[in-house]
């Protein structure tokens, strides 16, 4: 294809996005659009799968049968989200196995928040309330993103996430209305998860390398700083309902901006975790790679069995 032809295709492509039309797998798309989407969707899928680990860690110890059932269902939903997102990603011409390979070799990233440990039962509340809360803020705009399969997957994901968030808040509420020991557990969880949750919304706008292009493609509708402010403004009143204190002495309502001012985020910690040196990065990868390696003979057996059955069928047909 000549350069001119490509330019004209690109022009038409951009116009379609402007008109809010969905781009579908068989449509022409710029290579950079395809690559950016593979990166973002797979990163999202990996986050779901790695995100199963901190919560999965509490399934056997959930404090009541009701909570155990809800937690199992939640972690199962996350696996389901991983499944649709990997499928959405496969429509861009990359296989699930390649994506796993990228995760396992550290080439692909996943949300850094899952590199923090889930230490007490209250962490199940804090993760649902804060981490899923921040995730929803990130994800709701994606229900209208330009790439069709991703947008459709996100509609389902968001519905389930908002349910998870309410469930997390409800765990916190129960703890906060419980004994002093339970409330202390809830406060401790908030103290540990608050700052990492703010970091989840990404580096500040001046440090964010992908924002501008992503805004054009509607992969992003608001900047990281806008999303972070929205998360804080939404969450502070919820903490008040719980009677918990946000661990930020600079947090203050700003009448003029009609928003909360907040303290400095420790970006050194953020980059340390992103670069692979958080408290749980190595553990999380060990768990994923280990499950994959231990499962190899199982997957091989399933393939061999399917081939045998197929051969039998063909033989019968002859």
């Amino acid at each position: 294809m000549s350069e001119e032809q490509i330019k004209s295709l690109e022009k038409q492509f951009n116009e379609r996005i402007e008109r809010d039309e969905k781009i579908e797998p068989k449509d022409w798309m710029p290579e950079k659009y395809r690559k950016t989407h593979i990166r973002q969707i797979s990163q999202h899928a990996h986050s779901e799968i790695v995100g199963m680990l901190p919560e999965g860690n509490w399934i056997t110890r959930a404090p009541s049968l009701r909570r155990k059932v809800a937690l199992l269902a939640k972690v199962q939903d996350e696996a389901g989200h991983g499944l649709y997102l990997y499928s959405a990603c496969e429509t861009l011409g990359v296989s699930r196995n390649e994506l796993y390979e990228q995760l396992h070799t550290g080439k692909a990233k996943y949300s850094s928040i899952f590199n923090y440990p889930a230490l007490t039962w209250a962490d199940m509340g804090a993760i649902g309330w804060l981490v899923d809360g921040a995730a929803i803020i990130n994800q709701v705009p994606l229900c209208n993103t330009s790439y069709g399969p991703y947008a459709r997957a996100m509609i389902r994901v968001c519905k389930e996430e908002s349910f998870h968030q309410r469930q997390g808040f409800e765990i916190m509420l129960k703890l906060c209305n419980g004994t002093p020991e339970q409330k202390e557990m809830a406060q401790d969880a908030l103290n540990r998860w608050w700052w990492p949750s703010l970091m989840m919304l990404g580096p500040t706008d001046d440090k964010s390398v992908h924002t501008e292009q992503s805004m054009k493609w509607k992969l992003k509708r608001k900047t990281n700083d806008e999303l972070r402010q929205q998360f804080i403004d939404q969450t502070v009143p919820q903490a008040d309902v719980l009677g918990l204190t946000i661990p930020d002495s600079d947090l203050k309502w700003n009448e003029e901006r009609q928003s909360y001012d907040f303290g400095e985020i420790d970006w050194d910690e953020f980059w340390q975790v992103v670069k692979g040196h958080g408290p749980m990065n190595k553990e999380r990868m060990k768990a994923r790679v280990g499950a994959w390696q231990r499962g190899e003979w199982v997957r091989d057996a399933a393939m061999a069995y399917a081939d045998k059955k197929q051969a039998e069928k063909e033989k019968q047909a002859v």
Binding site: I49, M52, L53, G56, I59, L72, V75, Q76, A79, G80, G82, L83, Y86, A287, G290, A291, R294, G295, E296, V298, R299
Partner: peptide
């Protein structure tokens, strides 16, 4: 949960 040989068997 989270440690299955494939996503499908895990689910």
């Amino acid at each position: 949960t989270g440690h299955g040989p494939s996503l499908e068997t895990d689910i």
